[in-house]
Computed example of a mutant assay.
Amino acid sequence: MNIAALVLLSIVGFCISLTPLQYKGYKVYRVIPKTFGQLVALRNLESEGLYDFWREVSSLHEGVDVMVPPNLTKYFKNYLENFNLDGQVFIEDVHKLIHKERSNPRAFSPRHDWKRYQTLDELNDWLQSLPALYPGIVETVVGGISYESRKILGVHVSYKSGNKAVFLEGGIHAREWIAPATVTFILNELLTSSDPSVRSVAQSRDWYIFPCINPDGYEYTQIDPDGNRNWGYEWMQGGSNNNSCSDNYAGSAPFSEIESLSLSQYIDSISANLEVYLSFHSYSQLLLIPFGHQGLEVPKNNEELHYIGNKAMNALAKRYGIKYKVGNVPDTIYVASGSSTDWVAANYKIRLVYTFELRDTGKYGFLLPEEQIIPTGQETLDAVVSMIKQIK
Rank of each mutant, 00 (worst) to 15 (best):
221 T>D: 15
222 Q>I: 09
223 I>E: 14
224 D>F: 10
224 D>I: 13
224 D>K: 15
225 P>F: 01
226 D>H: 07
226 D>Q: 07
226 D>L: 07
227 G>P: 08
227 G>Y: 14
228 N>R: 07
228 N>V: 10
230 N>F: 02
230 N>Q: 08
231 W>E: 03
231 W>T: 07
231 W>C: 04
231 W>R: 05
232 G>I: 03
232 G>V: 02
233 Y>S: 08
233 Y>V: 09
234 E>H: 08
234 E>D: 11
234 E>Q: 12
234 E>V: 02
235 W>R: 05
236 M>C: 14
236 M>V: 12
237 Q>C: 07
238 G>R: 13
238 G>Q: 13
238 G>S: 12
239 G>K: 08
240 S>N: 10
240 S>D: 05
240 S>L: 09
242 N>P: 12
242 N>K: 10
242 N>T: 13
243 N>H: 11
243 N>D: 14
243 N>R: 13
243 N>Y: 04
244 S>D: 06
245 C>P: 02
246 S>D: 15
247 D>Y: 03
247 D>T: 06
247 D>P: 05
248 N>M: 08
248 N>I: 15
250 A>P: 10
250 A>K: 04
250 A>I: 10
250 A>D: 05
251 G>T: 04
252 S>Y: 08
252 S>H: 06
252 S>P: 06
255 F>S: 04
255 F>N: 07
255 F>W: 13
255 F>I: 10
255 F>P: 00
256 S>G: 03
256 S>H: 07
258 I>E: 01
258 I>N: 00
259 E>V: 01
260 S>W: 04
260 S>P: 01
260 S>D: 02
260 S>C: 09
261 L>S: 05
261 L>D: 03
262 S>E: 13
262 S>N: 11
263 L>T: 12
264 S>Q: 06
264 S>F: 03
264 S>D: 04
265 Q>R: 15
265 Q>S: 12
266 Y>N: 04
267 I>P: 00
267 I>G: 00
267 I>K: 01
267 I>W: 00
267 I>L: 15
268 D>I: 01
268 D>F: 00
268 D>M: 02
269 S>I: 03
271 S>W: 00
271 S>Y: 00
271 S>Q: 11
271 S>D: 11
271 S>C: 05
272 A>R: 10
272 A>M: 09
274 L>Y: 00
274 L>F: 00
274 L>W: 00
274 L>P: 06
274 L>R: 01
276 V>T: 15
276 V>A: 06
276 V>G: 06
277 Y>P: 02
277 Y>Q: 02
277 Y>H: 04
279 S>Q: 10
279 S>Y: 03
279 S>M: 09
280 F>T: 08
280 F>G: 06
281 H>I: 11
282 S>I: 11
282 S>R: 06
283 Y>L: 13
283 Y>N: 11
283 Y>P: 01
283 Y>C: 12
283 Y>G: 03
283 Y>D: 14
284 S>D: 15
285 Q>F: 04
285 Q>N: 14
286 L>H: 10
286 L>T: 12
286 L>F: 10
287 L>M: 15
287 L>P: 02
287 L>A: 07
287 L>S: 04
287 L>D: 01
288 L>R: 07
288 L>V: 09
289 I>L: 11
289 I>G: 02
290 P>S: 11
292 G>A: 03
292 G>L: 04
293 H>W: 08
293 H>L: 07
294 Q>V: 11
295 G>E: 09
295 G>L: 05
296 L>I: 13
297 E>F: 03
298 V>W: 02
